[in-house]
Amino acid sequence: MDEKKLNENDLELALSLSMAPTKFDKYVVLLKKDFGYSITKAQLAIILDKSEQTIDRRIKESCNIPNFIRSGEGKKASYIFPIIEVAQFLSNTIKTA
């Protein structure tokens, strides 16, 4: 990867983060950069540092999980977590010093 391009990307991210007024906005900037506009169940497990089984349990119990969209029915259904919902969840649950 071109070092100049990497530095430009880092500068753009730093500028976006510095202009984000709230924790929520900062999470949106970071999540969008890494994941686009939606997050899979596996990606959410990585973000929350939990296992996919824990994510499955939280979905089943509808507890301590960001709002999601279920695509399909039955065991083949997939779950899509919009970054806005994940950013809201993180800003409400992650404590910062």
Rank of each mutant, 00 (worst) to 15 (best):
Ile80Asp: 07
Asn64Trp: 09
Leu48Phe: 04
Ser62Leu: 11
Glu61Phe: 09
Glu73Lys: 12
Asn67Met: 12
Arg57Trp: 08
Lys76Trp: 09
Gly74Arg: 06
Glu61Gln: 15
Leu48Asp: 05
Pro66Gln: 03
Ser51Phe: 00
Ser78Glu: 11
Leu48Tyr: 04
Ile65Ala: 01
Ser71Arg: 12
Lys76Glu: 09
Gly72Gln: 04
Glu52Lys: 13
Ile65Ser: 02
Gly74Glu: 05
Pro82Asn: 00
Pro66Val: 00
Lys76Thr: 14
Pro82Val: 01
Glu73Asn: 11
Lys75Thr: 14
Ile55Trp: 04
Arg70Leu: 08
Ile80Trp: 08
Glu61Met: 12
Phe81Glu: 01
Ser51Arg: 04
Lys60Cys: 14
Glu61Ala: 15
Ala77Met: 08
Pro66Ile: 02
Lys75Cys: 07
Tyr79Phe: 15
Ile59Phe: 02
Phe68Glu: 02
Glu52Gly: 03
Tyr79Gly: 04
Ile55Gln: 01
Arg58Gln: 11
Gly74Trp: 06
Ile65Gln: 04
Glu52Trp: 06
Ile69Trp: 09
Asn67Lys: 15
Lys60Gly: 08
Ser71Phe: 12
Ser78Ala: 04
Ile69Tyr: 13
Lys60Ile: 13
Ile69Lys: 15
Tyr79Asp: 02
Phe81Ile: 03
Pro82His: 00
Arg70Phe: 03
Asn67His: 10
Pro66Tyr: 00
Cys63His: 14
Ile69Pro: 05
Gly72His: 03
Ser62His: 12
Leu48Asn: 00
Ile59Asn: 02
Ser51Met: 05
Ser78Asn: 09
Thr54His: 04
Ile65Cys: 03
Ser71Met: 11
Leu48Lys: 05
Ser78Cys: 08
Ile80Thr: 11
Ile59His: 02
Lys50Ser: 11
Ile65Met: 03
Gly72Val: 01
Ile55His: 02
Lys50Met: 15
Leu48Thr: 02
Leu48Trp: 01
Arg57Ile: 09
Arg57Pro: 05
Ile80Lys: 09
Gln53Lys: 13
Ala77Lys: 05
Tyr79Arg: 05
Asn67Ser: 14
Ile65Asp: 02
Lys75Gly: 12
Tyr79Trp: 10
Asp56Arg: 09
Cys63Thr: 13
Ile80Val: 12
Glu61Trp: 07
Pro66Cys: 04
Glu61Ile: 07
Phe68Tyr: 14
Lys60Val: 13
Gly72Asp: 03
Asp49Leu: 14
Pro66Asp: 02
Ser71Gln: 11
Glu73Tyr: 13
Ala77His: 06
Ile55Thr: 05
Pro82Phe: 01
Pro66Phe: 00
Ile69Ala: 10
Thr54Met: 06
Asn67Pro: 06
Gln53Tyr: 12
Lys50Asn: 11
Lys75Tyr: 11
Ile65Glu: 05
Ser78Pro: 00
Phe68His: 04
Asp56Leu: 04
